[in-house]
Design a protein around this nucleic acid. Structure first.
Lengths: 339, 339
DNA sequence: CAAGTGAGTGGGACCGGTCCCATCGTAGCA
DNA sequence: TGCTACGATGGGACCGGTCCCACTCACTTG
């Protein structure tokens, strides 16, 4: 129960000065091999671990960043894409010596708390995800001089537009999916569009509409739309039912996420529609759900690996005080059994 | 882009000493109303936020703790119980001025990193969950003098037995569920038991067996068992199929979690068994899934609120250097439509 | 009226690192 | 051989708070 050893204890144990110990801790340049070895042995013996607060008081860096989920309703990680993002960022940031934490900012208390953590230096920065509309969080993290290092996963709306972000080209991907359904000869097209107060939700709907307007409207194809307020499986089930009530002859549907599409499949099965024979179904994300689905889902592959790398790059740049440009990534259509 | 204000700037602005500012920051006892007001106004004007590292260097407290998910395979929050735990702890800890982060410790790198964060003072403590078997993490967090403040959600096995923990009385709850199925007149009992390298998984199976041995074996009732290695929905689907192959005349099944049970329902539906007419199904947790399921699941209500409170209490006690006793909580059987 | 009391305040030391500068010793070079 | 250059090292100041102690001053009390 004695006090944990400090750098002075290690120095005494190794027979060198604290400066030398500090140098070993920070890469060991300008230290003789003998001294370095003596210090390492002393650290081992004393079970020394550097004090986080003392170090970060000088460096003005904590080495910790947060992935912030700004959405309250959701079951957090119900959607495997969030989980994928978390793991990817975790590994990517570790290479740069940063630790990643997941945290929630879905009400006034948690939002305030997050901003304080950023301003007080507990966190070096944050990556925002699942932000809806013009979330008050945007204004809060844009305030101050310097403003906290915050980047956005997905395209921000409202005040958040001033944040650096990484997104995929949702609109053009949605166009491609829609054209694919038309090429399959489908005539009664539907979309289960995601929440219209998120960038991806809006863009995917726009892409669907624009592909329809361009190539389909003239040829007598009809289109139907249903919206959701989130990306949960349950909402996918409900929206699919609503869509079929509106359009009983529906023969193809583009669903704005794989998780929503999983729900849509449940409803279709329950209502006795065969996929893809009666209704073709396409998703978005190419998450594990698309491969596991029965039948396997045609979907859009988001380049998660690349997106993660870019998010890490943007965040580190912001922490370094720079102002990086937003990133837009291309997606790939993955055709499977459901269309 | 000027330096953020320090306590000295605030003191100068308010015309008092930094001691007085510090007192206001820490509750404001022994400060005259005038001085307190002047300081508060100065903090407002300078947009002062106390440096986290400077503060925690003195207090030896960071005010941050982590909820650690030690399981690699899972989709993190697929199971809503983890999400519930996270939100509950978040709110409970906030009342004591602690922030909660979620973090992963499922491989060597992340385990080491966690322990360093605890020893360096970045984190004051941690709550472990989803730990399997005799995870190496146990040994790592038990080492040191003083050992880091770590408590366990769920009953630990292996070396972890020395950690304070909060668990429910899984065994007696499982007995109650099993007896309930028997009282419904079912004769071909099955269990989809959770992972046998977790405390809850083992205890729920033991409870099932003991209820069977006591009351059923003599009366010609038969029992079948299937195990899983995790608590995912997919494993529930697979285990249910395996169980039915082994026991086609099965007429009741106790599934060790609601998420597993959701999967079991999928398989039963696919195989044309009606619930509860052909097969009665009971789950565990009373998560949102149980209420949403078709039909609504009979299950065991875990007192989440109480469990969360107790976890907070145990963790704070550990942080304060105490050695609190483990906690075991009673559960309640909730009968719904599935049995 | 002197002494005691306690609220309110200020300042120095300190927490445990990092950073910068001064110093030392030796190898390299003219 | 003398001077320079540079690798290696030590020590003081400092990061921005908290803590403790000393001090003032008004007010109570014997």
């Amino acid at each position: 129960m004695s006090r944990p050893p400090t750098i002075r204890d290690v120095a005494a144990e190794a027979g060198v000065s604290r400066s030398t110990v500090s140098r070993v801790l920070n890469g060991g340049s300008l230290v003789s091999p003998d001294a370095a070895e003596a210090v390492r042995a002393a650290m081992e013996r004393t079970r020394y671990v550097a004090s986080h607060s003392a170090r970060s008081l000088n460096t003005r860096r904590s080495g910790a960043v947060a992935l912030v989920v700004a959405e309250g309703q959701s079951r957090l990680f119900e959607d495997p894409t969030t989980s994928t993002l978390f793991r990817g960022l975790n590994a990517g940031l570790a290479e740069h010596g940063q630790t990643l934490y997941l945290t929630l900012a879905d009400d006034d208390r948690t939002r305030r708390s997050l901003v304080t953590q950023l301003r007080s230096g507990l966190l070096d920065g944050a990556i925002l995800t699942s932000v809806h509309g013009n979330d008050p969080l945007y204004a809060m993290v844009l305030e101050g001089d310097p403003a906290p290092a915050v980047v956005m996963s997905g395209q921000p709306l409202g005040a958040g537009r001033r944040l650096p972000y990484v997104t995929v080209r949702d609109r053009s991907a949605a166009r491609r999916v829609t054209r694919h359904l038309l090429e399959r000869g489908r005539r009664h097209l539907g979309i289960v569009a995601g929440p219209q107060d998120t960038g991806s939700g809006r863009e995917r709907l726009r892409g669907f509409r624009s592909a329809f307007d361009e190539t389909a409207a003239a040829t007598g194809v009809v289109a139907y739309e249903a919206m959701t307020t989130g990306y949960s499986e349950q909402e996918g089930e409900r929206a699919m039912i609503a869509l079929l009530e509106q359009a009983p002859r529906l023969d193809a549907v583009f669903v704005a996420s794989d998780l929503l599409a999983t729900g849509a499949l449940v409803s279709l099965r329950r209502l006795g529609r065969r996929v893809p024979d009666d209704v073709a179904v396409a998703g978005f994300d190419d998450s594990v759900l698309a491969r596991e689905a029965q039948p396997a889902l045609t979907t859009v592959r988001i380049p998660f690996e690349l997106a993660t790398q870019e998010l890490v790059r943007l965040l580190l740049a912001r922490i370094a005080g720079e102002d990086p440009a937003p990133v837009r990534l291309d997606c790939e259509l993955v055709v499977r059994d459901s269309t």
